[in-house]
Structure formats: structure tokens, C-alpha cells
Amino acid sequence: MNVGVAHSDTNPTHSYLNSKGIWLTYLLIIFIGHLLVLSIPYFSVALAWTLTNVLHDLAMFVMLHVTKGTPWVTSDQGDARTQTQWEQIDYGQQFTATKKFLTCVPVALFMLASFYTKYDSYHFIINISFLCLSLIPKMPQLHGVRLFGINKY
């Protein structure tokens, strides 16, 4: 589906990430975000990369794994009210191209952050914890699972 093209799916979350240019847009947003963080005076390169990684993982966690339902369109009448965005992508199928891509980006970002922080152990701990926050909820085994009932309703 392309955004702005007529379709009969009541829930655009199923397919909007497969639209043309969405992946590129996502990467560009990360890049611009990193440049912004880097442009703040007194922030070292290492700190800027760690911050980029942390902010990215946090933002994606909230957007993909905390937000439920369809945030913009209500015509699905609450069918997806109990599903997170990640669970709705590609109708809940696992290992689709979009889901693979969304998994690879935080990993690549972590590797870049590790490289630019000179494999420093403090930065490593912070970066790996936020990477886990981003990767663990994406596991197929956790589809529809709400650990400790958090965010269940």
C-alpha cells in the first residue's frame, strides 16, 4: 500500500511501513537526529553516538511496543485496540522484510555506537541494555505476550 492511495484496509498500520520511501525516511530521520545531537556543544562524539542509540531505541520502543490500537484512524472500530503497532505490522506475520529491516537498524546502530565509543565498557552497558529493549519485544515468541501484565488493557 502507498500512503494516499485508495485502499479498503481499515487499519493502515498493517501496511504503511511497506510504502515507497518509508525505510529511507526512517534512516534519514535517524541521521538528522544524530547530526542534531552531535551539534550540541560540549558533547563528545562518543556521547553523541550513545545518545543517538538510546533515543532511537527508546522512541522505537514507545512507538512500536507501547502504543496500541490505530493512533490516527478510527475506522477499524477498535479491532486492534489490544495490539501493539509491532503486532499489527504485516497483519502480525513474522520475519517479513519490514520486520527484518526494523530489527537490523538498531543492531547496526549499536555497532556504530560501539565503534565510535571505542568499545568503552560504560557506553557498552548502556548501549546493550537499550538494544535489548529494542530487540527482545520483537521476538516472535513474545508476540501478544504482556510481561507481568504491563500495558495489558
Partner: peptide, 14 residues
Amino acid sequence: LIIKLIFSKSYKPE
């Protein structure tokens, strides 16, 4: 992990 993801079969949404 990345290699696995890239080379495993992609399930296309119908």
C-alpha cells in the same frame, strides 16, 4: 543475527 535475518526466507504479507 543480521546474517540470519538477511538470508532466511522472507514471509511476504499477502
